[in-house]
Computed example of a mutant assay.
Amino acid sequence: VQFATDKAAMQEAYGGSVGGDIATTILPPTLDGHQDFDRYPVGPEGRGDLDAARAELAAAGMPDGFRTKIAARKDRLKEYRAAEALAAGLARVGIEAEVLDFPSGDYFDIYGGCPAYLREHGIGIIMFGWGADFPDGYGFLQQIVDGRAIKERGNQNMGELDDPEINALLDRGATSSDQAERAEIWHRIDRLTMEHAVIVPYLYPRSLLYRHPDARNVYVTGSFGMYDYVALGAS
């Protein structure tokens, strides 16, 4: 799945380069600990490395591919179209992935965030977007890669990753007051998670913010990546 993903087509679903840059890491460039690396390269144009994908399928004993389902939120049209682009990319190596549409309101409580539901309905891929609860590697990573964060409902560790080394690194990073050490820990977790291949990062999303010429005291908060409307004024 990592190698067969057409990240360029998924980026196009979000509006091309205006919508964001193609991603290869879990941590976004805006957070300490981000370092560029590409564990599963998909070619210079981002269209996929189909030979590598076929080799992985053969090694797994499934040279003709397999069937699965993709969960996506249709009322988030960009996400749903990205899921369709993902399915089309996977089909090139024989992976048949049916895109299922779910409402945003119950997505985490009943569907995508409910491991039992996913197993019962044969859903192997869950579309998901994520931002840090606070601008730090722990705020970004803990809920999505910590095995102790897996829940029966409202789960956001979609890959159900439970690696003792990653869990221990999260604890170590949470208690370290050394910024450089923390950044190195978050990067290490990023690399370890990608080794497990449970997350396919495909986009570092970008928001286009308009600012009126008469606006004053305009700045973007690091926590939310958007204008601080409390401080906003007008001349």
Rank of each mutant, 00 (worst) to 15 (best):
E195M: 12
Q143S: 12
R47C: 03
L170F: 06
A116H: 07
R172M: 12
A60M: 14
L31S: 07
R47V: 11
E98L: 06
Y40L: 06
K74E: 12
T24H: 14
L86T: 04
H212P: 08
A132Q: 05
G112Y: 01
H187A: 06
G20P: 02
A231Q: 15
D178R: 07
I125W: 02
E195F: 06
P135R: 01
A116T: 09
A97K: 04
G46L: 04
I126L: 09
F134D: 13
A174P: 12
D101T: 14
F108Y: 15
E96F: 03
V145C: 09
G43W: 03
L161H: 02
I125F: 12
V93Q: 09
M10E: 10
R54K: 13
G105Y: 01
A91Q: 10
L208E: 15
S223Y: 07
G225C: 03
A72W: 01
I70M: 05
L232M: 10
K69A: 09
N155V: 00
R39P: 04
Q142P: 04
L192F: 07
E181I: 07
A58R: 12
S17E: 14
D32K: 15
T24Q: 05
S177W: 12
Y138G: 05
L27A: 04
G15A: 02
G173L: 08
A149T: 07
A87S: 15
A85F: 06
G94I: 03
P41C: 01
L77Y: 11
I95C: 03
V93I: 13
G129W: 10
Y40E: 06
G124F: 10
G48C: 11
G46S: 08
P164V: 02
L192Q: 07
K78D: 14
N167I: 04
R119W: 10
D21Y: 03
Y14F: 15
G20H: 13
T175L: 13
I26K: 03
D136P: 02
I150Q: 00
G65P: 09
M226H: 15
E45C: 05
P135D: 13
L192H: 08
L50K: 05
A82H: 02
L50M: 15
A23L: 00
L170Q: 04
M226V: 14
Y107K: 00
Y40W: 11
N155C: 01
S104L: 14
Q2L: 01
F134Y: 15
G16C: 12
G43Y: 08
